[in-house]
Design a protein around this nucleic acid. Structure first.
Lengths: 193, 193
DNA sequence: GGCAAGGGAAACAGATCGGTTTCCTTTGAG
DNA sequence: CTCAAAGGAAACCGATCTGTTTCCCTTGCC
């Protein structure tokens, strides 16, 4: 009912439908039906479907990263521990009923133009995740934090897609296992403390 | 003109368009226009668009794996070398002009029903790649070939998606670097020969 | 030459797409 | 109470979707 909540509500419904069925397959009629708003209201808040898609991506970008970082910080309180906890948080994510892979991976499969604003948001999301991992690597005292972050981000990405296709969350522990080896090889020993 | 080549030609065009623009966004009108066949001919070979999608996925499954294995075998002639060469072949793949990510990753973003035949083909493709890696790990004398293959497949998957989103082929060498470390840790030393 | 089969072009069908407009009701602030 | 703004329901628009059908022309085979 509150005016300010309407827009966010539409975006929430749109995110859910886009994640589950894709972007082209999800019509505005269905979004408006499930959000229980009229088409007039929807187009009062968004000039076009593309603008709604973009708003959904940006909202999901913000919310997902915020929650993910919070989850990781709740699972461990040292930088090394948090780098590993990323994969525990991932496993919990993969195990959710409404897990349909990464929205930002799914969107690039439907919009191939590299100058598309959807791809900009997608690239930006992955870069933000990477920077987060870099910052943890720096705190953990990695010799080459950016290189280590590249490797950990790659494992993360691979685990997400593998979980999506296989329908199993096992890939998270596979990635976690490799991550542990990478940390052992790239982090200063505790003796250095 | 040959009757037998028509069906394959339609499939080839469909694969190209599905990879570049996605499945829902690619209409049969466009496929038929670019394949230079009439709609009658198209529906004479395929009962529905879904059947064409399925045929395209199966064809791509077969052709891609065949070519990929051939590329790997051309790049190295030992099992250890081939396990590494996977990522060199990947880099060449990522660098192609018409690289739009993995068709089987893209398709699961548009068809979320786990019982969908499209997802069956996708799962099967990833499993075939995994089995190929397992066989190389066995030949290379890995202690736990299936576990090592899980890890290498994860790196492979992560490299593909990262290349697709970033638009850069650098992820291949990142994955290759990690793969080398994994092989060094999991393969019997040369002294054992 | 004649003839059946296949294919091309295009009309057609019914549904759905994104998006606009109309009309009427609700609602909140002065 | 009044009145303007906002929202809901639904008609409407033109375009596009998958899929079917019609008509005509080519082509290969006997």
């Amino acid at each position: 009912m509150p005016i300010l909540g309407r827009r966010d509500h539409i975006i929430d419904v749109a995110i859910r439908l886009f994640c589950e069925h894709g972007f082209h397959a999800t019509g505005v009629d269905r979004i408006m039906r499930e959000a229980k708003v009229s088409k007039k209201t929807l187009y009062n808040h968004f000039r076009s479907k593309d603008e709604l898609i973009l708003a959904a991506l940006q909202q999901h970008d913000s919310v997902f990263r915020n929650n993910f970082v919070k989850d990781v910080e709740q699972l461990a309180n040292t930088p090394e521990g948090q780098l590993i906890a990323i994969f525990d948080a991932a496993e919990a994510w993969f195990s959710k009923q409404n897990f349909f892979g990464c929205m930002f991976v799914n969107v690039v499969g439907e919009y191939s133009d590299p100058t598309s604003p959807m791809r900009d948001v997608s690239r930006n999301f992955k870069q933000m995740i990477w920077r987060y991992i870099v910052s943890l690597c720096v705190e953990a005292g990695a010799k080459n934090p950016e290189k280590l972050a590249n490797e950990l981000a790659l494992l993360f990405e691979g685990a997400i897609v593998t979980a999506q296709i296989s329908g199993s969350a096992l890939s998270a522990s596979t990635a976690k296992n490799v991550a542990k080896q990478l940390l052992a090889a790239n982090l200063a020993k505790k003796a250095d403390k």
